[in-house]
Nucleic acid binder design. Structure first.
Lengths: 193, 193
DNA sequence: CGCCGAGTTGAACTGAATCAAGAAACGTGG
DNA sequence: CCACGTTTCTTGATTCAGTTCAACTCGGCG
């Protein structure tokens, strides 16, 4: 299955589109490859796309006083964008970068909004994506507020063991809001009991 | 200006509705008063409404091991709901309570979704609300990840000095992710320099 | 009055950060 | 394919921001 049909399926799972609507939508799409390490969006730029990941993985992070803080990871089959900037049209506080060789379908802001204007179901897709992103953020906010570093790690292992395996200590620790050394120690704890 | 016209204005600021659309929308609305301390939604219940606050203020919080963690405050003129539950139709992890005597307009889930189905602009309003809520959550997530307690307090004072004045130490500290004693000490620091 | 919850202050404690150094993994070019 | 430099990961010692526990103050209100 190529990436376009994966995208078509992903969209269909959000809201059904008629053949006509899908054609209108897919007209605007292009694809692009991002070798590992390349940026989908750099901090300070305005985000012009939502990306659908056909292959690969991305990391979203921001910097503060020279330190990196990871906000999210995304994998194959997911929608990715520097959403804050995509919505507000202001410079992005977060950078998005490929952590593996990545292939993405690009959904341009302008055409997406034209699609929103012309198709009720397009608007619905936009709503559902926003709602889904909200839930991701709330869950993380609650974890950061109420759990210790160790508990956050344990919760992540439960929820997404694959992620914990494949992400580097450096990136994973900055996602959990701790230092790499601390994650290393936490992992040592978990090996034993 | 009564609460309905305030709501009408708030909606108009999100997306313009025709007179006909507004009539269809406003048909489903009712109002309700929540004396201070009363719950708009209790943890474990499914949220059936979005509330528009005509008057008063609310606090959203969740519990973990007997402790309270505040997620958000809302004031006059804002939309309020246990959004996670409203979206997922699952029991709410979050309670919403009136921290002042509050008057709200109730937008029922079912009718809102009927409105979404029938009116493209309704769907747009839903999208914009979700997008706005996303931004609120992301900003807080970034603050919790990257700032110290003192910096989070300072940032909140900058962004919303009125809130910092009127919310109790107990509730404000649980919003900042610290203990009341710590907030008290931070405030002492800020008096001096 | 006297009680009661909310806020403050102090002293001891602790989870995680920081600093420092060594070990392992990784690429890159010879 | 191996040697080398670089980055990543781990481990140990110390420090620090924020917690915990406990005592005290203050303002309301029965």
């Amino acid at each position: 299955m190529d990436h376009f049909s994966a995208l078509k399926q992903a969209i269909a799972a959000i809201a059904p589109l008629s053949a006509e609507e899908w054609n209108a939508f897919s007209e605007a799409l292009t694809t692009r490859r991002f070798p590992k390490g390349e940026y989908l969006c750099r901090e300070g730029q305005v985000e012009h796309y939502i990306y659908f990941l056909g292959k690969g993985a991305t990391r979203h992070y921001f910097q503060r006083e020279g330190r990196e803080f990871t906000v999210d990871f995304h994998f194959e089959g997911e929608f990715v964008t520097a959403y804050y900037s995509f919505l507000t049209r202001k410079p992005s506080p977060v950078s998005a970068t490929a952590i593996e060789d990545t292939e993405a379908i690009l959904i341009p802001h302008q055409q997406l909004h034209e699609f929103y204007d012309r198709h009720h179901m397009g608007e619905r897709i936009g709503r559902r994506i926003a709602e889904y992103q909200y839930i991701r953020r709330l869950e993380r906010e609650m974890a950061l507020l109420s759990l210790t570093a160790e508990e956050r790690y344990a919760a992540l292992v439960m929820r997404n063991p694959a992620l914990v395996q494949q992400i580097s200590v450096k990136h994973l620790s900055s996602y959990l809001g701790i230092q790499p050394e601390s994650l290393s120690r936490i992992r040592k704890q978990f090996g034993k009991p």
